[in-house]
């Protein structure tokens, strides 16, 4: 009995020493995962995930606190990428998250705008130009379509316009005439 205890104790001491040494020698700091997750997120900063922006959501995912299917602007493809990165199963949208919508940009009806700057304060990416008592304008190229400016507007002059397909942003479609869908 005693010899058994001694043997196990000896093993434990040796292993403990090795691991202790390794813990010092191979110490790692920080979590590079957050940045990797953040790189996949679409950076709309829309808060539809219930976190106050993309980075906080990424942090929450990395900490295992948030599901990967909470980002509607990223679409299913975004979920797939997150699933691949984290080595977890794909999870479809569902529950309390909204389904993805067509990409759009905000548009301010300048005839109605009273220049209150509330939308400017709400815009997470500084995509609205203007000053107090002056008309505001959306810089369309920088608008992420997060809709955060729509609600604060006291005169409802902001609408979301779906980005139309033009020759400049047109994409080739997936060939549909494969065998399974033939006439």
């Amino acid at each position: 009995m005693l010899s058994a205890l001694l043997v196990m104790a000896a093993i434990a001491i040796v292993l403990g020493a090795v691991l202790g040494f390794a813990a010092i020698k191979f110490r790692t700091e920080g979590n590079p995962l957050v940045d990797k997750i953040d790189a996949i997120l679409p950076q709309t900063q829309c808060g539809q995930c219930s976190y106050p922006g993309c980075k906080p959501y990424a942090t929450a995912i990395a900490a295992g606190e948030a599901d990967i299917n909470r980002c509607p602007p990223g679409g299913e493809e975004g979920i797939q990428k997150l699933a691949d990165l984290l080595g977890v199963e794909f999870k479809p949208f569902g529950g309390d998250t909204a389904a993805p919508k067509a990409k759009s940009v905000a548009f301010i009806d300048e005839a109605i705008c009273i220049g209150c700057t509330l939308c400017i304060q709400a815009c997470p990416v500084d995509a609205i130009a203007g000053a107090a008592k002056q008309m505001h304008t959306i810089i369309a190229a920088e608008c992420t379509g997060c809709e955060l400016c729509v609600a604060p507007c006291p005169v409802d002059c902001i609408s979301m316009l779906v980005i139309e397909e033009k020759i400049t942003n047109w994409k080739w479609k997936y060939p549909v005439y494969s065998l399974t869908t033939k006439k």
Partner: peptide, 24 residues
Amino acid sequence: RFAKSEIRAREHDKQLADQARERH
């Protein structure tokens, strides 16, 4: 053609996202 245009669009989106992140 489909794959190329899809990849280009993605790279474009990625660029926009990076810009948005920077601005944010």
